[in-house]
């Protein structure tokens, strides 16, 4: 039975992935800080789909522990990283420690752990790595550029890793979900048509892994929106508030 390791396993998107992959018959490992609190999720997924769910403690910021974490047996067939931290742009931009925490949580930690898995999967010659990045990384904006810049770094890392691993049997998927109705965005008033439900993201990721897609936007309109946003000349863009 193939095994899917989900990093940041408490998040709504991670759990939606767990349901989607368990529904397709995969065993699941949820890796999260304080993983012992995920007992109800474990019971739920096991009961619904008759698969095995493991729980592991994982802190993306504990980069010294990443090699050991990735070395643990068995090496999963699929690794999905949903770790992320939105932060609060207004407060964080005047607070170095807070900005660094956002940068590290969205870039350094996720990239480092996926890098550790990539090397092992490459040696084995099979595997899929999925990184949940963000459209916020497609262009820095005043309202969330600390988060966005870290996601931009993560997106570039995933793209480079995909390039490196092509032909090795290991595939890399970059997910740019657009708005998703999760705990992270619960307090925001998001436009309904642009906002995906976590289950949609789970289904889209399952499909992307099956089909070997490279970069997915969950709702198609986001590809269009970001295409437009990227094409605005900087002289105009810098004066806009979006």
């Amino acid at each position: 039975m193939s095994q899917v390791m989900i990093l940041g396993g408490r998040s709504d998107m991670a759990l939606a992935c767990a349901h989607a992959f368990a529904g397709a018959g995969h065993d699941i490992v949820l890796a999260a800080r304080r993983s012992e609190t995920l007992g109800p999720e474990k019971a739920d997924i096991e009961l619904r789909y008759g698969v095995t769910v493991g729980l592991r403690d994982f802190d993306a910021l504990d980069v010294d522990g990443h090699e050991d974490f990735a070395a643990a047996d068995p090496l999963p067939d699929i690794v999905i990283c949903a770790v992320g931290r939105m932060g609060e742009q207004d407060a964080d931009q005047d607070d170095v420690a807070a900005s660094v925490a956002v940068m590290r949580s969205n870039y350094e930690g996720p990239a480092a752990i996926l890098g550790a898995y990539a090397t092992r999967m490459e040696a084995r010659g099979t595997g899929t790595i999925v990184g949940i990045s963000s459209v916020a990384g497609d262009r820095g904006r005043a309202t969330n550029y600390i988060y966005g810049s870290a996601k931009a770094g993560f997106t570039a890392f995933l793209s480079g890793m995909r390039n490196r691993l092509t032909g090795t049997g290991v595939h890399v998927v970059t997910v740019k979900p657009g708005f998703v109705a999760t705990q992270m965005t619960e307090h925001m008033d998001l436009p309904e048509r642009l906002t995906a439900q976590p289950a949609e993201v789970g289904a889209a990721i399952l499909k992307a892994v099956d089909k070997g897609q490279n970069v997915i936007y969950v709702r198609g309109v986001w590809r269009l929106i970001m295409g437009i946003i990227r094409s605005i000349p900087e002289a105009i863009f810098k004066k806009m508030s979006i």
Binding site: P40, E41, A43, D44, L47, R48
Partner: peptide
């Protein structure tokens, strides 16, 4: 709050949120 918590396959009792 939508987790299934336990199922007793002998008695058919489901515990759930």
């Amino acid at each position: 709050m939508n987790r299934m918590l336990d199922f007793d396959a002998d008695t058919g009792v489901l515990t759930a949120e």
